[in-house]
């Protein structure tokens, strides 16, 4: 089954028929496996990687380091949940090292993000401190190179 997910993770538009041929297993089995994975939330969603910079859309991203106080019994989970519920938070990770949570936050402008940090994030009881890093350029996202992917430079016919 893992091989089905590898294929879909690389290209979500690969059809069950193609997967069935690629792996030599019946279409019905592929469809069943995908359905089950969707139900179990092994497959969360089918997404598209978009380079928004090409659309000149006013948008900014920031990586925010958050230092928090863990709570008895629940550790970091409750405060993490409190934070990731904000729609501005695109990704949230608990990390090792000098801070605890690493957030990817999206806003319309720097002001927007600053406002989120100062009005929503920093005032939270369990938040001890934050450091905001605005993204200047995206080179690679989810394994995809954004600007200059390598072209195939082969001759059209070789022995």
């Amino acid at each position: 089954m893992e091989r089905i997910f590898e294929i879909l993770e690389n290209d979500a538009r690969t059809t069950p028929e193609q997967i069935s041929t690629m792996l030599g297993i019946p279409v019905a089995e592929v469809e069943k496996a995908i359905k089950e994975a969707e139900e179990k939330r092994t497959i969360l969603k089918y997404k598209t990687i978009i380079n928004w910079d090409k659309l000149n859309k006013e948008q900014v991203w920031a990586l925010i380091e958050v230092k928090v106080v863990p709570q008895r019994d629940v550790g970091f989970d409750t405060i993490a949940e409190h934070i990731y519920r904000f729609p501005e938070v695109i990704s949230a990770y608990l990390v090792s090292g000098t801070y605890d949570l690493s957030l990817l936050v999206q806003g319309k402008s720097m002001h927007d993000v600053a406002k989120f940090v100062s009005e929503k994030l920093s005032p939270l009881d369990k938040v001890q401190g934050t450091t905001t890093h605005f993204l200047l350029k995206r080179y690679k996202d989810d394994g995809e190179v954004l600007e200059f992917p390598e072209e195939i430079k082969r001759l059209p016919i070789t022995p």
Binding site: E150, R154, P156, I157, P159
Partner: peptide
């Protein structure tokens, strides 16, 4: 043209 005429990988 789409080439299936090559004799080498399409990976760098």
């Amino acid at each position: 043209v789409i080439s299936l005429g090559v004799g080498e990988p399409d990976f760098s």
